[in-house]
Design a protein around this nucleic acid. Structure first.
Length: 467
RNA sequence: GGCGGCGUAGCCAAGUGGCCAAGGCGGAGGUCUGCAAAACCUCUAUUCAGCGGUUCGAAUCCGCUCGCCGCCUCCA
């Protein structure tokens, strides 16, 4: 299979360091507030990548970190008059709930920066010893000129970087482009002891340390949003490779940004959309289907309407198995194992080809919708083959993390559910007496509760109305 | 200024040299049904921002023009 590598700006054949095994690291959040829809995209993109690699038979070790020491956390803690740990604990907990609500699998390891301070100090010490880093007033900086490949990932020309003039001028730095590895403690900030005095780590060092700690000095995939390419990932590479002398991550994968209307989401503009608010209004599968309808590297714009459309489209994916469960006896269901019938094999093949091509989820979904329609149309196929096909479709949808048929009675109390059952029985009587007027009255009463009735030869089904 | 990306049907979105330009939503008609819904069938881009070029052949390659966006500073 092929993946697009930001480092080479090309699709490359995926060759892992250990055959059959993928070791990947994805940059997680800084827990100083509730996670927003942009975090959701990154999480879902790499969740799908991880699930698909596993589907293809790889054993995947996935690490996603928490940056739990940072300016924004400190500011938040000071505003609230609580400890930084209290702030980060709260939002890490919230993030875990959000991820669960979105159907994002927990990473194999979810380390926190503050649990690895000693290792960071160790790495910085080695960099200082090698003279690629220097100490100034209790701060430690990485000296960019000592690491010639700096700028390769982001395609930056170092001179132009300097000419950009947006680099903060700090007279104490040897070069304005040098970045902090360690920051001397200021009053009111959390700090840890170090050979250079009390302080805290710079942002980039944690990812170098934790990825190496859990995945080794060289590993397969490093991911994150495109906004992290520079400077964050550039700096990670510099720190890690200056220390180990070995290639750090082999493949750099970056998801495109999610925009809210014209403007990029930004706290200062107040146009953030939190995951917790989002999942109250949209089924997680609808959100995921909507996101996967655009290739992960392309930017995507949030739209309430697009998410509603996705919820409607979900039916084609879950419908075939759901319907067959009703019409086919359970022994047929049980006996439907084995090879995928040839009449459906092309859909799976198309799915795999699409996903093998840099995780082309829009094309993969196309094959799934075709699969669904083919199942609905296949009247001359044996029940065993139909069931086998329908279960294959569900299973492929599952490898994209689309996990659940839509809820039937979500948001309805048991009493209302019973009321509806009573009304349906009344209506059945009316229909038997061919009292269509009465039957339609009852239907519209039930519909005003947000429930849709479906008549068929075997009785009346009901479900929550789609948006 | 530097680096990168985008412009495909009413909307969303794949496709990056050659079968009729995927798929979703929406829309139109039809089958089925007491009605409705679901499901199914058919239709909905002679054309890929514009112009020029390369080629037997281009949405796909090259050049120019127009429009839009991201990064270069904390950010998924």
């Amino acid at each position: 299979m092929k993946v697009y590598n930001t480092m080479t700006r090309a699709k490359e054949e995926l060759v892992t360091l250990t055959p059959g095994e993928v070791r990947m690291y994805v940059c997680g959040v800084t827990p100083y507030d509730y996670s927003h829809i942009g975090h959701a995209r990154s999480a879902i993109v790499f969740d799908v990548i991880r699930r698909y690699l596993e589907y293809r038979g790889y054993r995947v070790t996935m690490v996603r970190n928490y940056t739990d020491v940072d300016d924004k956390i400190i500011r938040r803690a000071n505003e609230e008059g609580v400890s930084t740990a209290e702030v980060s604990d709260r939002y890490i907990e919230a993030e875990r709930r959000d991820m669960e609500a979105l159907g994002v699998l927990p990473p194999s390891v979810a380390p926190r920066a503050t649990e690895h301070i000693a290792e960071m100090v160790g790495l910085i010490e080695r960099l200082v010893a090698k003279s690629v880093a220097y100490v100034v007033d209790g701060d430690v900086y990485f000296e960019i000129r000592r690491f010639p490949p700096y700028g390769r990932l982001s395609g930056k020309n170092l001179d132009e970087l300097l000419a950009g003039a947006r680099v903060e001028v700090d007279e104490r730095k040897r070069d304005p482009r040098d970045f902090a590895l360690w920051k001397a403690a200021k009053p009111g900030e959390p700090s840890w002891p170090s050979p250079w005095g009390p302080g805290r780590p710079g942002w980039h060092i944690e990812c170098s340390v934790m990825s190496i700690r859990y995945l080794g000095e060289s590993f397969d995939i490093h991911g994150g949003g495109t906004d992290l390419i520079f400077p964050h990932h550039e700096c990670e590479i510099a720190q890690a490779e200056a220390d180990t002398g070995k290639p750090f991550a082999h493949y750099w994968l970056h998801n495109g940004m999610l925009n809210l209307g014209a403007a990029k989401m930004s706290k200062s503009l107040g146009n953030t959309l939190t995951i917790r608010a989002l999942v109250k209004r949209h089924p997680p599968d609808a959100l995921r289907l909507w996101m996967l309808g655009t290739h992960y590297r392309h930017p995507i714009e949030w739209s309430e309407e697009r998410a509603d459309e996705a919820a409607r489209a979900l039916q084609t994916l879950w419908g075939p198995e759901e319907r067959l469960r009703k019409w086919v006896d359970s022994s047929t269901f049980a006996s439907s194992a084995g090879e995928l019938p040839t009449e459906f094999a092309e859909h799976r093949t198309r799915f795999i080809e699409a996903m093998d091509d840099d995780f082309n989820t829009p094309a993969a979904l196309g094959s799934l919708f075709d699969f669904g329609h083919a199942l609905n149309r296949a009247s001359s196929v044996s029940p065993q083959h139909l069931v086998r096909g329908a279960r294959e479709l569900s299973s492929l949808a599952h490898t994209l993390g689309l996990t659940e048929p839509k809820p039937r009675i979500q948001g309805l109390s048991a009493e209302i559910g019973q009321q509806i059952e009573v009304l349906i029985r009344e209506r059945a009587t009316a229909r038997m007496n061919r009292d269509w007027k009465r039957a339609d009255e009852i239907r519209s009463r039930i519909e005003s509760l947000g429930v849709v009735l479906t008549d068929s030869s075997s009785g009346t089904e009901w479900e929550m109305k789609q948006k």
